[in-house]
Write a protein that binds this DNA or RNA. Structure first.
Lengths: 246, 246
DNA sequence: GCCTCGGAGCCTGTATACAGCTTTTGTGTG
DNA sequence: CACACAAAAGCTGTATACAGGCTCCGAGGC
């Protein structure tokens, strides 16, 4: 039954999203070897698209190639998580600096200002009733638009890649806000930083824009440290940390 | 004749290096669609490892996926080249900063100092007789070791990726030195910067180390501008620029 | 003359068969 | 009881067959 569906890269997409889910939800332990036949059966695809998905996941950094053959789920140390956050900060800082240095088209500025305004509105309901999902969507959009402000296709690509690691996502800790008041405060600080970054870009203050964007990513680092040092029981509540060892 | 060779990923490796050569040497024009059957025949592999190689090349950024199916050679604009150099500078700057901030094991420092000394020795023959190939190898090693000094596996990976784009390589313009005295001077300046970067790292001056490493990458930018503005006829002599449009 | 529609060829995405390497298990020996 | 070795099972990497789109061309209509 070759080409049963036949259209596009449908099976590969199915294998990719399915496999990504399995890894991200921790249903496959870190370091575990990934059997192609087993996974193919589980995901209801043949080995060919499954192997394609494995290769893509390798590029995303979720799985590692085993020298003797095959793949295994990548192990992330605490240092890896810290570095991934740092890296996102560096890249977003570069995006902000380039935007400031090179200038930004008014239309793009308007679009990102709109997002910031909507983020403000998302704060209006009292904290317990806040729609975190909506906030996360808008926050993600802010960061995507920030990358675009740089005017660099290359940087947009790199940032898309960097954000794929779940704990490096700007929303890594947003889901857990319901669990700790400290997290909610970081949202407020974060939104203030959003505005400061935009202001720096508009004033063409490249160095300030870069520093602010870097600091903004450090909020995630702060949340990470908070979880690890003061509330280790929250670790399981933050899905993004499922992959982290220790 | 399934599994004719059978060992490891030999065919994939063959397809990957062969295909990369074809693209890098400009034997396939930018924007051209890549026919799998044609290429498979040309490289003497079957379509399966060829497709694997195509996917890897997509991750390297040399080919683009066509939405309707298949791949094409990626087009690089002048801006892309500039941004790739900038990105390498940012990442190497981060590596240098982290090395300074976090400290470096003496053994690693010794290793990179050795490379710097050998680079000095490579300058001893009079410029026309200089062994550029040896210089490029040592220079590449310096940059690889610099990444390792950061102590961040993630950053090492990212820098390996970033350097894959030929024009973003630290050696992008080294091959062309024979063609212009101006290039030779950049080698001298570059070596001085190597030493300054190491000094900053040893003194734990993170900010200085970062700025220096960024500036070091800008040598490539300088060479690029020199070629484009003053000696356009050299463009064909720099293999790394073969992929650039215009 | 330009646009729309249809068909033929080509091409990609997918499934599957096969062979050699890796790993593991079980047995025999020191 | 530990270790070495051998056989077998499982697995991956590779080749290839197949089917459904996609592309391009030409014919027909407005």
């Amino acid at each position: 039954m070759a080409g049963e569906q036949g259209l596009g890269r449908q099976q590969t997409e199915k294998a990719l999203s399915g496999l990504r889910d399995l890894v991200l939800k921790g249903e496959i332990a870190a370091g575990e070897r990934l059997s192609e036949v087993l996974l193919a059966g589980r995901l209801k695809v043949s080995r060919t698209p499954l192997r394609a998905a494995l290769q893509k996941l390798e590029l995303e950094g979720l799985v590692d190639l085993i020298p003797s053959g095959g793949y295994q789920v990548r192990r992330f140390s605490q240092e890896d998580v810290i570095d991934a956050i740092e890296l996102r900060g560096v890249l977003e800082g570069t995006a902000a600096r380039l935007a400031a240095e090179r200038g930004v088209a008014p239309a793009k500025l308007k679009a990102i200002h709109d997002v910031v305004r909507k983020l403000d509105e998302a704060f209006e309901p009292a904290p317990p009733d806040m729609d975190f999902e909506r906030y996360a969507a808008l926050n993600g959009r802010f960061h995507a638009l920030l990358a675009e402000l740089s005017g660099s296709n290359l940087l947009v690509r790199e940032l898309e890649r960097a954000r794929r690691l779940p704990f490096a996502s700007p929303n890594a800790f947003v889901g857990a806000e319901g669990h700790a008041r400290a997290f909610q405060q970081t949202l407020i600080v974060g939104q203030a930083q959003h505005k400061a970054i935009l202001s720096a870009i508009e004033l063409r203050e490249g160095s300030r824009a870069e520093a602010l964007a870097r600091e903004h990513a450090r909020l995630a680092r702060q949340n990470l440290d908070f979880v690890l040092q003061e509330r280790p029981e929250l670790k399981d509540k933050v899905a993004a940390l499922a992959l982290m060892a220790g």
